[in-house]
Design a protein around this nucleic acid. Sequence first.
DNA 1: CGCCAATTATTTTTT
DNA 2: ATAATTGGCG
Length: 667
Amino acid sequence: MKLSLYKLNPQQRKAAKIVDGPLLVLSGAGTGKTTTVVNRIAYMISRGVKSEEILAVTFTNKAAREMSERVKKMIGRSAKSMQVSTFHSLGLRILRENHKLLGYRRNFTIYDTADQLSVVRKALRTISAAWKKYKPDEVLYALNRLRMPHNEALDLKYENEFDGAVYSSVWEKYRATLRNNNAVDYEDLLVQPLRILKKYPEILNSYQEKFKYIIVDEYQDTNAVQFEIIKLLANKYKNICVVGDDDQSIYGWRGAEVKNILDFDKHFKKASVIRLEENYRSTGIILKAANAVIAGNKDRKAKKLWTRMGDGNRINFFAAADEMTEAEYVVTQIITHQIENKMSYGSYAILMRMNTQARQFEELLRAHRIPYVVVGGMQFYDRKEIRDFMSYLKVLSNHEDEESLLRIINVPRRGIGDSTLKIMSEHANLKKCGLYESLATLNESSDIKPKTLFELNKFYVLIEDARKRLKRESIAMVARNLWAEIEYQRELEATFSDPKKIAERMANIDALIDGIQYYENRDRKPTLEGYLRQVSLMEEDDDEEFQKGKVVVMTIHSAKGLEFRNVFFVGVEQGIIPHTKSLETSYGEAEERRLFYVAVTRAKQELTISYSKMRTKFGQRIERLPSMFINEIPDNLLEPTDGIYQEVADDEVTEDLLSRFGAMFSE
DNA sequence: CGCCAATTATTTTTT
DNA sequence: ATAATTGGCG
């Protein structure tokens, strides 16, 4: 294979050619990090490294997909068996391959944050001292922090006695519940594999042999557990290449430790260090603004990003009257810009600090019939009807999952309330079986009314039937059938008078089942468990093709690693970025500044920063101020478009709108 | 046990 | 503003 590293600059080339031994690539935003990594992989393979010996780890599925696609594009089939995965899917894989060692049964369920919260809430309720005083989400957050890195007794040395006692009590209950339910949470997906690797040297050795070459992307975002996993895996051959940028560390709230990247050369002796500082992405002005803001952070590796590109346009700065005006401005700008420059809609991105900000933009984009995608936000799977039905599927897959069982046993209403559940649970304890099995053994001798007993039995048969059908029918078919059988629609009709709302929810379920179908069609060996796993890790294909030609709406966190010609950075207000909540922590301000930095450096050519002077929050109109970070940008880089924006109603736009209308009817 | 009205929290970011 | 949760009553 002929390889053309000549396209790389000297530093990039140097990095690409270091195949053996530890290597740290410090790469600033837009310095061709992925290009370098992809070329490096190609080079490795050309030098005889087998693709199946390469493991590349990223943080998001998006990044994983991008990397494997670019490698495929460059060297085609010879990269086929390269392993590109996120930390969590890597952890899941190790855990699945060795689940028995830690006492998990096959088909364990992955609990998401909502499931975790529900377990914490129940645990809190059993502690009288904790009643009302502790918020479940705060306790969960504390637990996740205190349980790391080893998942054993909590590290309470910095907590006061009272909190500590509550935390550890909740923690014990939490752990017991997950164990009992044959469930793991996201943290387990990292911690449990680590335990396996530590405890079983022969297993560790087999992974070390399997993955002789390791690449870690966004290394600045690794936490203590991820660091230990990587260190163990790389310990034998020491062919470890990490890539990252301390200025883009934005996961401190998830336990990421910037010191992992800052101390890399201490952890891995004789590491080569290469800096990539030439930026190929953004114009001079965008870079200057980004540099000015990030300079406000202390304790960072000095970096001087530079570009050969010219200054470019100034940053458009727009102060909107309120959030609706802001959205109108942005969408109108996109429309006019698109018409004037005939650019694909795919070159526009609307970036924001939080998912909830997406709403107005989404509405307006839809109203103007502009193709768009909203990335992430999980909203779909958070909808009640979706969660309900997913719980049915989870029970189908793992009947020990009592969290899901309890959620659905009376949804739709079957007349099974707290008292019945209490009897059931006593019965289950007596028989030393799970709640689900107790359904099969309950009989008239208990104090349950015949009517209720009948319903319980009906429910049991319903699930068992579906489970049997799963062996011969397609998952989508079983799901569709199950959905019809539970008559959820009746429940909806009882709760909502508005037929639109009912139709909407039914449509959501249709979409879910279509999603199952889609999964089944494209997976080589589809299983219900596989589907649930994919959803839990958010591994669905919102791939390149799907996003092509569409305006992308997303959070800064999901935008990391991506670039767009035109970026609209919206809602840039004090309280949103930096977010009020984040300022409560010691690292908060610095991390918010890095977030701002990440947002700005996504833009290649044109950047608009906007905010709203008024915003509705919890039904209240509130005055807002621009983000403090805007003051850190030198004035001469900004082009203010203050006040009321001009109505852009020139002929072209009208014409365009008319043609859209035409398209609407011809559909 | 189910229904309704009153009360309360919701908005940080992802796997 | 809205959705979810809680408490009291039939």
